[in-house]
Design a protein around this nucleic acid. Structure first.
Lengths: 174, 174
DNA sequence: TCAAAATAGTTGACGCGACAAGTAAATCTG
DNA sequence: CAGATTTACTTGTCGCGTCAACTATTTTGA
C-alpha cells in the first residue's frame, strides 16, 4: 500500500491538469467578456436555451446542462433577465417550478457571439490536439466525470418545459 | 474552410472538458475546506512554499508556481499572513520584491492536510485512469498549456529567494 | 387524509478574484 | 547621470458564487 503519494508521472500530469483547470476558464471568460459582454457561464446559459425547444427550459434542467447549482443559476438568470436576454415565467404543470426562456435579444446575442467563441475554443484546444488526442481526451474526461458527478446530473435526460402534448425526443447537440 | 463549427466528436469532448474544468476545482475546494480550512488555491500556495528552499519564495515566483496573478496572490498571502501560516518580508537583494515564507504553523498545516488532499486527487483522477490514459493526459495538457500559457509563466525556472551565495540548483518536484 | 418529507427555487450575506490604479525601486537610454 | 520605462508588488472596488436560510408547492406514507 504505497497509496500515500503520487508517482512522479502522476504528479507531473496532475500539475498540468490543475493548470488547465485554472487557466482555461479565464481564457474563455476574457474572450467572451471582451467580444460579447458575457461570462463563459452566462454564454452557456443562453447557448443551452438557444438549443432547447421553444428556447425554454426549467431551471433545474438548465442547471444540469450548465453544471451549476440552482442557486448560482438563479442569480445569473436574474441578471440576464435584468439585461433583457432571458425571461422567467412559472411552469404551469408544476407551480414550484420556473421556466427560463431566451428572448429575441438573447437569441441575437447567441447568434452574434457563437462564432467568436467557437473560434476561441478551436484555437485553445482543437488546433493543438491531434484527432487521436481528442478521442483520448473524451475517454479521460468521461472517466473523471463519472467520479466527479456520480449521479450524472449533468447528463440528465431532457425535461420538457411546457409539453405541446405530442412530439418525440428532440436532438441534444452535445 | 469549414472552420466555423466543431465536429460532433469535438463538441462532445468539449462539453466534457468544460464540465471537468468547472467541477474539479469545486471538488478539490470542498475536501480541503472541510478537512483543513483551506481553499485549493491556498493549499497550493503553502504546498509550493513547503517545497522551496528555506520555505521561502518571492511573490513572483510563487505566483508562477500557482498559476496566479500577482494581485490574487497578494490578497491570498495577506490573508494567510493574518492567519499566521505565512510571513512576508522585503527581499534584501531587490527592495521592490517581497519574500513569502512559510511559518512553523503553516508547515504543520501542510503536513497534516497533504495526505487527505492526495487521497482526494487519487480518488477523483488517478483511480479512474489507466496508466496509458495518464500518459495521454500529460501529452494533452502539455499541448493545451502551450497555447494557454504561451510565455510558459507557470514553468518559470526556479528563482532563488535569498541566495546563500554558493549551492547548485535545487530539485523541483513537479 | 393529513402530516412529514422531498422538491424547486429564491434571497441575503459574505468572501474571493479580476480589474484598474497607485507606489516604489531598479534599469535602461540618450 | 537624469529622465523615462520597466518591474514588482499593493490596495480598493466591484461582481460573481457559495452557503445557509427561507418559502412554496408536490409527493409520500402511516
Amino acid at each position: 500500500m504505497s497509496e500515500q503519494w503520487l508517482t512522479s508521472e502522476q504528479l507531473a500530469t496532475w500539475v498540468r491538469l490543475v493548470a488547465v483547470a485554472e487557466l482555461l476558464p479565464g481564457a474563455l471568460d476574457s474572450q467572451l467578456r471582451r467580444d460579447a459582454g458575457l461570462t463563459h457561464f452566462e454564454y452557456m446559459v443562453v447557448a443551452m436555451l438557444s438549443e432547447a425547444p421553444e428556447r425554454t427550459l426549467r431551471m433545474t434542467a438548465l442547471a444540469a446542462r450548465t453544471n451549476a447549482t440552482l442557486s448560482r443559476l438563479s442569480h445569473v438568470v436574474g441578471r440576464l433577465a435584468d439585461r433583457g436576454l432571458v425571461e422567467r415565467f412559472p411552469c404551469p404543470q408544476d407551480r414550484r417550478a420556473t421556466n427560463a426562456r431566451l428572448t429575441e435579444a438573447g437569441w441575437q446575442k447567441v447568434v452574434e457571439s457563437a462564432p467568436g467563441h467557437v473560434a476561441n475554443v478551436r484555437h485553445h484546444v482543437f488546433e493543438v490536439l491531434s484527432p487521436e488526442q481528442v478521442a483520448q481526451l473524451a475517454g479521460i474526461t468521461d472517466a473523471i466525470l463519472d467520479r466527479l458527478d456520480p449521479d450524472g446530473v449533468m447528463t440528465a435526460p431532457y425535461q420538457r418545459p411546457t409539453p405541446p402534448d405530442d412530439a418525440t425526443e428532440p436532438a441534444r447537440p452535445g
